[in-house]
Design a binder for these strands. Structure first.
Lengths: 345, 345
DNA sequence: CTGTTAGCGCATTCAT
DNA sequence: ATGAATGCGCTAACAG
C-alpha cells in the first residue's frame, strides 16, 4: 500500500546523476544533455514521481496559493463569485484556499492566522468584518498586521482606518437602476425590504434608495423600509410586516434575490400575486432568480468581472506590479417578469 | 510595508536561547522554564510571529490538509455537503483544499496531481469519474496510483476495479420511500424525470424505480421516464416532453430538486398546477426545496452525517486507524406540499 | 531544562 | 553539462 516516498535523491541515484541535475529537468532551469534527461524522465515516469510542493515553496519562499476568507460558500452569491475567481486564479498559476467564516469574526481571525502559517501569498477578503459600518479597531489592527506581511484585497467591503486595496460592485448605481425602472413603470409608491443596519452594503443601499426617491420627487415612507436580514426567511418576515400595513406600496425593492423570493412567497400567501399586485425586484442575479416564478427582475453583480479583477489586483500586488487601489465594477439590469406597469385602481 | 520574515532563529537570538527552545514553547513538546518561556512568548507577541507551516509540514511529513475533488461548488448539493464536511474536518484539526473539477476528467487529473504535490494527507472524491457507469480504465489506474500514496474516500460513487473506501447515500431506499409515498397517496401512474444514462446514481435510481413499481404491481411506462440532466433547464425540458404526451402520469419523481423545480415551472407554464394536477417529488432537499412554491416534497441526503462520516473515514485512514470500507447513509423523507392524494377525474 | 546537530525535499550558487 | 555544498524554517534526537 504505502510505497515510500521517492525523492529527487532516489531518482538521482538510480540515474547516476546528482540531485541537482534531476532538479534541473524538473524546473527546466538549465540545459541537461538529452540522453541523461531521457533517463531521468523515464524514472520520473516509472515511479510516478511528483516533487514535494512544500519543500519547493519553502525554498522559493512563494507558495503560489491565495486564501479566500468569505462568509458562507453555501450562499449562491459567494459560491458563484468564488468559482469564477478560483478559475481565474488557476489560470494565472495560483491555487485557492477557501475559508468559510460564517460571518464570525473569531473564525475570521483564526483563519487569518491559519492562512499566514500556510504561507499563502495573498488573501481575498469578503464579508464579515469588512462589512461592518462601524469598524472594530481590534479587527482592523489584526488585518493591518496581516497586510504588513502579504497583500490583501477587499471585495465589496472596507474598514475605516485600513488603507486596503479594494474592488467592489457599484451598488449605488444598481439601486438607481432599480428605482429608475420602477419609476419608468409608473410606480411612485416604493418599499425597500431586507438587509441589516450596521452592514455597509445595506446602509449604502438605503441611503442611495432615499436619494433616488428624492431625485424623482417621491416621498420616502419609513414604514415601507423594513430591515430584516438576507435570506428567504427574512424576506418572508419583512413582507408579512409590510403586507399588514394599511397603506402599501405598489412596488418593492429587495436587498437581494433571496429576500425577493421570500417576499414573493409571502405575497402569494396573502392571496396576492407578483407582478399583478406588486412589482418586486431583487439584487445579485443568482442562478435561481431566473427560475423562481415569475422570474425575478434584478441587478447582476457581474460576478466574472468582479472575481477576475479581485484576483488580478491581488496577483499583481503579490508579484510586485502596479495595481489600482480601488476598482468599481458596474452592475447591469436584468429584466424578467416580476415587475410591471403600475395601473391605478 | 514588508517586515522581513522573522523565524525562530530571530526569536531565539533575541531571547538568548537556542532555536530548539523556541520550538519547544511553540509545540509544547517539552518543559521550558517559566521565565524563559515568558521571554519567548513576549517576543512572539512582539513580532506577531507565526511558525512557517510549510517548514513544519516538511519535517512532520504531514500537512494536516485534505483535498476535495468535486464537480461544482456552485451546486447547492455540493456546497452544503462541503460546508458540513469542512467544518467537521476543521474540528479534527484538518484544513480543506477545494478543487472544482466541473465534471471534467482532465481537470480531475490535474487536481489530483496538484493535491499530491501539495502533500495533502488524504482526498475526498465526489462526482465526475466515480459516477460513470462504465469505468475508464485509465482514470481508474490513475486513481489507484494516488491511493497507493494517500488514502482516498469516495462519496456517492464507485469505480469498477478500484477497491476504494466509500461512503454513500442510500439512494435506493430514498427512491423506494418516494414510490411508497406516491402509492400511499393513491397514485398508480408515476413518471420519472431527469438524470443521465451512464451516470451511476441515475441508473441506480431508474432500476430501483422500476423494481419498486413492480413490487406495487404498477406498470412501468417507458415513455414516462425521460432522461435529460440535472439542472433546472433539464427539468423544464423533460417536463415539456412529458406534458405533450397524450396520456400522462398523475405523479412525477424527479432525479433531484433542481429538476423538480424545472418540472413545476413547466407544469405551470402549461396552465396546470402542482400538486393539483400533478404530484411532484424531488431528491436532495437542497435549501431551496422548502421555499420553491409550493414547497417540494423530497428526500434528504442527510448532508451532515454524510460529510461527517466521509471525513471520519478519511482521517481514520490517515491516522492509521480502522475504518469501515463502505458506509451507507440512510435518507429521510421530507414531506411538504408538492404532493397530494390522487383523485380520479 | 536547554543547546547542538541533523535532517525533511528541493533549488541554487559556485565550481569543475 | 554536471556535481558538491548550502540554505529555506522547523522539529527531533541526543547530549549535557
Amino acid at each position: 500500500m504505502k510505497k515510500d516516498h521517492v525523492t529527487i535523491y532516489d531518482i538521482a541515484k538510480e540515474a547516476n546523476v546528482s540531485p541537482a541535475t534531476v532538479s534541473r529537468v524538473l524546473t527546466g532551469s538549465a540545459k541537461v544533455r538529452p540522453d541523461t534527461m531521457n533517463r531521468i524522465m523515464a524514472l520520473i515516469e516509472k515511479y510516478n514521481f511528483r516533487p514535494n510542493g512544500l519543500a519547493r515553496s519553502l525554498t522559493y519562499k512563494k507558495s503560489k496559493m491565495i486564501g479566500f476568507i468569505l462568509p458562507d460558500i453555501n450562499h449562491p452569491f459567494f459560491s458563484t463569485l468564488v468559482l469564477k475567481s478560483e478559475a481565474h486564479a488557476l489560470k494565472r498559476g495560483y491555487t485557492s484556499f477557501l475559508c468559510n467564516s460564517m460571518n464570525n469574526s473569531e473564525m475570521e481571525s483564526q483563519y487569518l492566522h491559519n492562512l499566514l502559517e500556510k504561507q499563502v501569498d495573498g488573501i481575498i477578503f469578503l464579508g464579515g468584518r469588512i462589512n461592518a459600518v462601524k469598524t472594530n479597531p481590534e479587527y482592523a489592527e489584526e488585518l493591518k498586521q496581516v497586510m504588513d506581511r502579504i497583500p490583501v484585497v477587499f471585495v465589496n467591503g472596507q474598514m475605516s482606518g485600513v488603507d486596503a486595496y479594494a474592488v467592489h460592485t457599484d451598488e449605488a448605481y444598481g439601486v438607481n437602476q432599480l428605482v429608475q425602472l420602477l419609476v419608468n413603470h409608473g410606480h411612485s409608491k416604493i418599499g425597500f425590504l431586507g438587509g441589516l443596519s450596521g452592514i455597509t452594503s445595506t446602509e449604502m443601499k438605503w441611503t442611495t434608495f432615499k436619494e433616488a426617491l428624492n431625485d424623482h420627487n417621491i416621498e420616502v415612507r419609513e414604514e415601507w423600509m423594513i430591515e430584516s436580514g438576507f435570506n428567504i426567511e427574512s424576506g418572508e418576515e419583512a413582507a408579512a410586516q409590510l403586507l399588514s400595513l394599511k397603506e402599501k406600496p405598489s412596488s418593492i425593492i429587495c436587498v437581494n434575490d433571496f429576500v425577493a423570493m421570500g417576499t414573493i412567497n409571502m405575497i402569494n400567501k396573502f392571496g396576492l400575486s407578483v407582478p399583478h399586485d406588486f412589482s418586486v425586484v431583487g439584487f445579485d442575479d443568482i442562478y435561481l432568480a431566473q427560475y423562481f416564478p415569475p422570474g425575478i427582475t434584478t441587478i447582476s453583480q457581474n460576478y466574472k468581472q468582479l472575481g477576475q479583477t479581485a484576483i488580478d489586483v491581488l496577483i499583481n500586488l503579490i508579484e510586485g506590479k502596479e495595481a489600482q487601489k480601488e476598482t468599481i465594477i458596474p452592475t447591469s439590469l436584468v429584466i424578467r417578469n416580476s415587475c410591471k406597469q403600475f395601473i391605478p385602481k
